[in-house]
Simulated assay, not measured.
Amino acid sequence: MSETPTRRGQADYSGRSVVFVIYLVAVGIAGVMGFLLGMVGPNALRSVRLFFLIEMPPTPLGLAVYGMVTLATILGVLLLAVRFIARRYG
């Protein structure tokens, strides 16, 4: 009897799923912006290095991958740190 009643036809969203969706949307936006930046001005851009190891060309695909991987890594580490702290000191 500890179940919480929900309204019929309405989904029950947890905090984790909302944060995960926001994470995916932010990474997707970074990819789109990188792609658009690569389309607009590849002549004025120089290549970037992903994690200081892999050189990415200033093409639409290269900049999209660079933006998505960089943002996914930074936000992923921050979210894992918040999760660890919340479990440890919650």
Rank of each mutant, 00 (worst) to 15 (best):
P5F: 12
N43D: 14
A64H: 02
G31A: 14
V32S: 06
D12N: 09
A64I: 11
Y13R: 08
G62M: 05
L53N: 02
V48R: 01
G41Y: 08
G62S: 07
S47C: 09
L45M: 15
R49M: 09
V65Y: 02
G28A: 14
T59S: 01
P58F: 00
Y23E: 04
M68V: 10
V69E: 03
L36V: 13
V25S: 02
G41M: 15
V77T: 05
M39I: 12
L45T: 11
I54W: 00
R87H: 05
G76W: 00
P57F: 03
G67T: 12
Y66R: 01
V48H: 08
A86G: 04
G15L: 15
G9M: 09
Y23D: 12
V77A: 09
L53H: 07
L37H: 04
T59G: 00
V40E: 04
P42W: 14
V82G: 01
V82I: 12
A30L: 03
S47K: 10
G28N: 12
P57D: 01
Y89I: 15
V40F: 12
T59H: 00
L71E: 03
A26R: 07
G31L: 08
P42F: 07
L36F: 07
P60C: 04
L24N: 13
V27N: 08
G38M: 08
L71A: 06
T4D: 02
Y23N: 01
V65A: 10
E55T: 15
A44R: 13
V18A: 15
V48G: 01
G15S: 10
S17H: 09
A11Q: 02
A30G: 08
V21C: 10
N43L: 09
L36P: 01
